[in-house]
Amino acid sequence: MTRLMLILAGLVLALFAGALVIGPANAPYWDSLSALFVDDGTPLTLVMREIRLPRAILALAIGASLGMAGAAMQGYLRNPLADPGLIGVSSSAALGAVIALQTGLAAAYAFGLPLAALVGAVLGVLLVLALAGPRGASITLILAGIVVSALAGALTSLVLNLSPNPFAASEIVFWMMGSLADRSMDHVWLALPLIGLGLALLATLARGLDALTLGEDAAQALGINLTRLRLALVVGTAAVVGASTAVAGTIGFVGLVVPHLLRPFVGARPGALLWASALGGAAMLLAADILVRVVLPTKDLKLGVVTALVGAPLFLHLIYKTRRQMA
């Protein structure tokens, strides 16, 4: 258990360092790292501090967000196929961003896009909470999430449909694929407080999620306040996923695959899976973002495309494993 944490933490650290030293500037690894800490007056310091560092921090934070939110959602719904997008936050954040791109808000103000995405996420989560009702049952949350996702998806399509400007439309499509390219420290400062708050909130769920292994009735009788648990889950997920989507677009499969992959290593305990998935998600996104830069450095390969390309076969493998166990 602690060994797993050490292995994962070591992996994240190594990949974080890798994300810092690998890139098109092609400087020697050691020079890159020293340029990060000591301003030597060369452009390398600028590259390290203004380009690679924010990108690596965002990959780490967003990966951790998606991993932990996925583990929390799966634990709460007691379903290994649940994913943080289920409550409609990522689609409503995407809708906000798409509207910003379409109206020119994104071009007019530097932070027009991420702020519009955050507004979308907040509206989406308020709608989900209102639809799901006051009691703590999970089924109403799923239904409310599906409604909000579908609505946000339909409105996004509508914006694309009515877009008179083909450039805006293609920009929207590319943005929705998810990327960390050209993000600045300002993006980090915008996303990090929300992500920190959300992760702290999600981390409090460990015990309640463990108790939910026995079902909602038994968990309540074990002293777990399901109404409060669901509220913390929804608000925490909305904070991390909303902030992530706002600065990086929609990145799929991390929240679905990582908890699934790590579950056997924590004895299937949903509480322990939270931190393991946060580390695992960070590692996966850092690795994917390195891959983006190494495989097709000139083509601006999108991060969300890579996570889906890596995630889908991984998931396929897990399905085969499950099938073998059931046979």
Binding site: R78, L212, A218, A221, R269
Partner: peptide, 17 residues
């Protein structure tokens, strides 16, 4: 929860613990 324990009829165990 310290006063009474409850065993529901549904024998639900969500995860392979």
């Amino acid at each position: 929860a310290q006063q009474a324990a409850w065993m529901p009829q549904a024998r639900e165990v969500a995860w392979p613990v």
